[in-house]
Write a protein that binds this DNA or RNA. Structure first.
Length: 576
RNA sequence: GCGUCCGUAGCUCAACUGGAUAGAGCGCCAGAUUUCGGCUCUGGAGGUUCAGGGUUCGACUCCUUGCGGACGCACCA
């Protein structure tokens, strides 16, 4: 039940009809014809730009075209009034009973209200977080994690098949350093050997001590007398422990991945060789040299002949190295193999969520996916910009105990899962985000999460006071109630919900959802406040009764809020 | 030097892949309510959308040049 979609269809049918009658000529594409919400001042419910689009091919001014279409639209019963505005917009106003029919239709199929049913269903693979398994998650990972999770929720809400994936970088230099750090901590615990403080490669964080203790406890038979003897086994154990830490953090954020892919497995299964071989066959690999970047300190730069991928053919600014000096694979080579692995699993769309600091990586990875698949549009990378934490108007750091990081755990302990998720999603991921602790904890209109949750709680309280359940069946017999102007304003907002979902999922930009929910809540609270002065506008009357139309009205608001909050992964408590 | 993202009200940000007179919240001003200057409610002021040029019926949105800010620019992951 998307009234914008329905009326777009109706318009297109009218156009096709007029075309066969040779009244008008249609342009090649009808995509730019849309049905929208008119600005509030025009007293219309929906509007269309159709006349402007048809103006050129027909060589007639828009208002002339608009008048032709208007005549056809007038035949539709539920339309009360049509007007043509300045350049040629057509504004449609529905009659009053339209809105009760609309609500009735929502509850005919309440589970799919908002779902874009006309959209083609696809198989998505969303890779997100993929933080190095060398410690707990910190705030920097948090925004991308939530963005990825909510995109998945959104896509599956729209009935697509979605897999959440985490790429575990359990291979390479960082992991060796990490394992060595764990080894030193174990020696510290078991043999009282002082942890080296002069080695910058080692990880200093205190959480390593906990990991070390866990490993000792779970592996009583292991001997820690030589790093070389134990490093293979210890690497696996260390990665496992720190991955557990990450999974715990993610769980507290309400996030669970379907699949963890290990870089080590990719390398050890010779998938890198196979992927590079494939690129070679397609002639995208050669031996060559890379120039040092300009404007930086290049004193240490050594130019050297090496195996390169021709990413410049796809618009990258330089070709990218596949092999290191010692002939082992670069991180990029591993990622090439990983993406070949993804491609072989037959998804329609791959989505990667990256942090702002990895934005420079996008060009080469999209290049290589295009090279491997021949498909330019299969991989879609989303970047989430930085988060600035603010307390008392100043940027601040929370936990010194755990190194310089502010961890996800700190954040959740401080403000909770729901607030973290809601605030992180409140802005476009393209924009830096201020995360203001004092505001997040405030119980006022300023706190958007609180305001939306409060709306749901108020609705729940009505049902509670009446000893009714919000999920009780609705009686639609003889339902043709005429809603008031104030109510219709809110019902119109409810009608916008499918549009909000459509735009959010097409652009992969879920930040519209919190904004939408805030607007809906705001209108609902205003309506609620009207009941202060005007008792007829209260939901429960003097005799402690409620009318059927008000139940339906309340339930429709609750339905949309609940459904929106589900997508955001945020709770809707019935009492606050 | 190059690449990516951003620049909108005093502040924090929206603007439905190019639509109409650019919208919210906070702050400010004026009222209402209130045992209070706090909370809540109603209304109001506030804009050359960083600057210039271009594309068209129509530009915050697209192209181009410049300015300003953030991030990145190994064989590290």
């Amino acid at each position: 039940m998307n009234i914008f979609e329905i009326y777009r269809e109706k318009l297109l049918n009218i156009l096709k009809d007029l075309k066969t009658k040779k009244v008008i000529i249609l342009p090649e594409s009808l995509n730019s014809i849309n049905v929208d919400i008119p600005p509030a001042k025009f007293d219309g419910d929906i509007s269309s730009n159709v006349a402007m689009i048809l103006s050129k091919p027909n060589q007639k001014p828009p208002d002339v075209i608009a008048k032709i279409i208007l005549k056809e639209l007038e035949k539709i019963d539920e339309i009360e009034n049509i007007s043509i505005e300045k350049p040629g917009f057509i504004n449609i106003k529905f009659n009053k009973s339209f809105w009760s029919n609309f609500l009735k239709n929502i509850f005919n199929n309440e589970k799919t209200y908002g779902v874009n049913l006309n959209q083609e269903k696809k198989k998505y693979l969303v890779e997100f977080v993929s933080a190095n398994p060398t410690g707990p998650l910190h705030v920097g990972h948090c925004r991308g994690a939530i963005l990825g999770d909510v995109l998945c929720n959104l896509l599956s809400f729209n009935q697509n098949i979605v897999k959440r994936e985490y790429y575990v970088n359990d291979f390479g230099g960082q992991i060796i350093h990490f394992t060595k750090s764990i080894y030193c901590r174990i020696r510290e615990i078991l043999f009282n050997e002082k942890f080296p403080t002069n080695n910058n490669d080692l990880y200093p964080g205190d959480y390593l001590i906990d990991i070390a203790k866990n490993i000792i406890k779970k592996n009583k038979d292991l001997k820690f007398d030589s790093f070389d003897n134990i490093s293979d086994k210890l690497t696996i154990l260390s990665v496992k422990e720190s991955l557990n830490l990450i999974k715990f953090n993610l769980k507290n954020l309400g996030i669970e991945h379907d699949n963890f892919v290990s870089e080590r497995d990719i390398v050890e299964n010779n998938e890198v060789e196979k992927a590079v071989e494939k690129l070679k066959k397609k002639n995208f690999v050669y031996l060559g040299k890379i120039k040092a970047p300009e404007g930086e300190d290049n004193s240490k730069w050594v130019e050297r002949e090496q195996l390169l991928f021709k990413s410049t053919e796809f618009g990258d600014d330089k070709d990218r190295a596949l092999q290191k000096e010692d002939n082992t694979w670069t991180y990029f080579a591993g990622d090439v193999a990983y993406h070949e692995n993804k491609l072989n699993r037959n998804f329609d769309i791959l989505i990667n969520i990256l942090g702002a600091d990895h934005a420079g990586y996008i060009k080469r990875i999209t290049s290589v996916v295009e090279a491997l698949s021949g498909n330019k549009n299969i991989l879609n990378c989303k970047v989430s910009q930085l988060v600035k934490l603010i307390k008392d108007g100043k940027p601040f750091k929370m936990s010194k105990r755990k190194g310089d990081y502010i961890t996800v755990e700190d954040l959740i302990n401080e403000v909770g899962k729901d607030a973290t998720r809601f605030i992180m999603l409140n802005r476009s991921s393209d924009v830096e985000l201020d995360f203001d602790f004092s505001k997040v904890k405030e119980k006022s209109k300023d706190n958007h999460l609180y305001y939306v949750q409060y709306c749901y709680a108020r609705i729940s309280s009505v049902f509670r006071n009446l000893n009714k359940k919000i999920n009780d069946e609705i009686n639609f017999e003889n339902f043709d109630h005429i809603y008031t102007k104030d109510e219709i304003k809110i019902i119109k907002k409810i009608a916008e919900w499918p549009k909000c979902i459509e735009v959010s999922s097409n652009k992969l930009e879920p930040h519209r959802i919190p904004s939408y929910l805030y607007e809906l809540s705001s209108e609902f609270h205003s309506y609620w406040n009207l009941g202060k002065d005007d008792k007829s506008k209260r939901f429960i009357d003097e005799n402690n009764k409620i009318t059927n139309d008000k139940i339906i009205f309340l339930k429709s608001v609750a339905l949309v809020i609940k459904s929106g909050m589900n997508i955001l992964g945020v709770d809707t408590p019935e009492k606050m």
